[in-house]
């Protein structure tokens, strides 16, 4: 399990956080790190999509040993899928707001808030999925 978690933290999480970290770093360098600047960058949604997609892929790898219908794995898969789709919908609404160019009052700030909530919950969910898969695999 430890190996899987280390691999998860090192490769998957770090690479999923890379666009967000780069965006924050560049904003900081330009001395423009404000809440508004954060609200104008959708990288946090890429993180949500990436962690849920990776965990979905990892569940599919051990699919052959799971019973035809296991409620936990069924709910985990659908929650991850729903999370990925919802992140894409939020990204779409971010783009829509950029394209129409008539930014509604506080829309981006609200979008940032819900994106952060989604990112945190999908991070917890994906980490627990990795722990569960790691427990099944053992230290191999």
């Amino acid at each position: 399990m430890t190996k899987r978690l280390i691999r998860w933290m090192t490769y998957n999480l770090m690479f999923a956080l890379l666009p967000l970290a780069a965006s924050l770093f560049l904003h900081k360098l330009a001395n423009k790190l404000t809440l508004e600047a954060m609200a104008n960058s959708p990288e946090i949604l890429f993180f949500s999509i990436m962690v849920s997609a990776i965990s979905l892929g990892d569940i599919s790898e051990i699919n052959f040993i799971i019973k035809k219908w296991d409620i936990t794995f069924g709910v985990l898969k659908s929650a991850l899928l729903l999370g990925a789709v919802w992140s894409a919908i939020l990204y779409g609404s971010f783009l829509y707001d950029s394209i129409i160019g008539q930014s509604l009052s506080n829309f981006r700030i609200q979008l940032l808030n819900v994106s952060m909530l989604l990112a945190v919950i999908l991070f917890i969910l994906s980490t627990i999925v990795q722990v569960l898969i790691g427990k099944i695999e053992g230290d191999k």
Partner: peptide
Amino acid sequence: VTLYSVIAISLAVYKI
């Protein structure tokens, strides 16, 4: 989505 994910997390924690 958050509520559904919380249910999924609870089920996974219970299983573990």
